[in-house]
Amino acid sequence: MLDFSKNYFDLFGLPVGYIVDASSLADRYRDLQRVVHPDRYANGTEQERRLSVQGASLINEAFETLKDPVARAAYLLSLHGVEMDVQNESTQDMAFLMQQMELREELESLREQAGPYETLLDLSGRINKQITDLVAQIAMQFETPNDEQLQEAREILRKMRFLQKLRAETERVEAELEDRLN
């Protein structure tokens, strides 16, 4: 069966690294699921069905992780032996934190605005831009990482998590506004 000890990159036959080609990742994902998915074993034995559910779950998990720039960064860090405490660790970069607070306030005040869509669009544009910048920065740290660069990557990842949450928040406000419209 699937070698569950393989790391996600090996599983997909991809080189271990931060830069992942999205289309070949998706191609390999589909090719793997084509042979492992439970639909291939719907009429198989109990054991085949069990193995295929486990295998397909693992491939889904691996795909989700490698697809998402934030999850991928955390996974790559853990492969390098850096385990983050997701719940409790946060960046201490004051300038960044201040900026986050401002963005959050901006988002909160949106709800009271008369024409909030323009601002919302602009805001999510800026958030996405920031994430993209961090993705580029972290990619550099992962090129040939030493301890110092791994610590730097960890710090960037903390910031990414902040922005990711904010983006989710933005989407929620957008949904709220739309519902109110109807």
Binding site: G13, V35, E48
Partner: peptide
Amino acid sequence: VERRMNQSIQQAMSGHSVDEF
């Protein structure tokens, strides 16, 4: 059964050789 599944996975992946990269 396990050997067969492994085999099909290898086959699926062999379409993409590492030299793509």
